[in-house]
Design a protein around this nucleic acid. Structure first.
Lengths: 220, 220
DNA sequence: AATAAAAATTAGCCTAGACTAATTTTATTG
DNA sequence: CAATAAAATTAGTCTAGGCTAATTTTTATT
């Protein structure tokens, strides 16, 4: 079945909102998330329902059907595979790849995604630490925690970010916090939640609670 | 300036028709080439003229302005770079890459094209033997001739095809005529123009004049 | 339960880019 | 050079996917 760019973006949005933990994916929430008017969302939900990609009723909100879910996963898989390619092979930094991957994810060819995945060595995570579904839709799990929940004194490796905004990613670049960098909590300030962290054997640095709540780390 | 998919495809078409040697790129010719109605072509030519990408008058037909020309070259560059990537890195055969490259060529990022080109070693020709413009728009030249015009008994290397139709490309696969394969004219039949060729040190094979008129070879 | 507020929906409009059918302009040719 | 044929254009329609404004439905609050 042929899917338009716009349809694909709605599927992605519903998937993202569900995974973000929205109890009910309402018209309003989708509209805000996508920056479209509620009227447009209603139209599209009708269209997607007719195509049986989405189940929607006002009461319980929108949800992906099983075909809709596969479609969404396939788009996310492509997005993340292309991000790996852009970073690892073309030398982009992880804060610059999103917009391009946003375009590449819509290239229609499952075979291309499979071949790309093989070429990249079937990576399980993208440069932001997000899991890459395999071709059957299995999503790898990682034992990652937010830096803010990590254990004092223990060594961790940075595996991703929660907030992928350019502002945050650029701040990370400045602090030289890249994917794969070692990081360690040294001191907790009970007053404002700020903390002292050591980055990659360098000097220790004070960061805010908000900062630590947006970095995924994995024991190392 | 933002260009839509459709606009880009018209620019490509005008470029291709010009290069194909059409004296006058008329509404009718564009319509046939793209499979659109003449009415649609007129509409789009108006739009492209307003954007100063195309100069058009009924008398002399359509032509690319200098910005239109750069835009077309940039799309062609991307198309051919992606074809190289698909064949060389992902293992596609040259007869399978066109449709995917047709999508990839519209990814908007000159920087991506540059990085991809570097990654591929700045190739000068795509898998069909067509030249890849560099970032400044210079188009490499190749001393290629059609097999039908090659010298009897001399060794050549296959560098491309004129007719890139699936039918022809599949026929080539069957004959094991791939890019880079050695080929040599052994005998000419004056009656129907058919010829005996040796492919890659294998057995000799009879092919039609039409066949030989659609294969580009380069002395080797 | 009545009312107010919020959410969803409908109605109607817009643009891009197609289309067909009708018309006008240009070219050909007897 | 008038008649015809061909090419270009215009007029009007359609679909996708947006929008605003108005209305209806649902939910919350006195």
């Amino acid at each position: 079945m042929v899917r338009t760019l716009s349809e694909e973006n709605y599927l992605k949005a519903i998937y993202a909102l569900k995974r973000k933990g929205e109890e009910k994916v309402s018209v309003k929430i989708i509209a805000i998330y996508m920056g479209n008017s509620p009227a447009s969302v209603v139209d599209m939900l009708k269209k997607l329902s007719a195509k049986e990609l989405v189940n929607y009723d006002k009461k319980s909100g929108a949800d992906l059907s099983s075909t809709g879910y596969s479609a969404a996963l396939s788009i996310i898989r492509k997005h993340r595979l292309w991000e790996v390619f852009l970073c690892e092979n073309l030398g982009y930094t992880w804060d610059k790849v999103h917009d391009i991957a946003e375009q590449l994810e819509h290239i229609k060819s499952e075979d291309l995604a499979d071949k790309l995945s093989d070429y990249l060595g079937n990576p399980k995570f993208d440069p932001h630490g997000d899991p890459i579904p395999d071709k059957k839709g299995n999503i790898p799990k990682k034992d990652k925690v937010l830096l803010s929940k990590s254990q004092l004194g223990k060594s961790y490796r940075v595996v991703g970010v929660l907030d992928a905004s350019t502002l945050f990613l650029e701040y990370l670049q400045k602090l030289k916090v890249n994917l794969g960098v070692m990081i360690q909590l040294e001191e907790l300030n009970a007053f404002d939640g700020s903390m002292l962290v050591k980055i990659n054997e360098g000097e220790s640095q004070t960061v805010s609670l908000k900062f630590a709540q947006n970095i995924w780390v994995s024991p190392a």
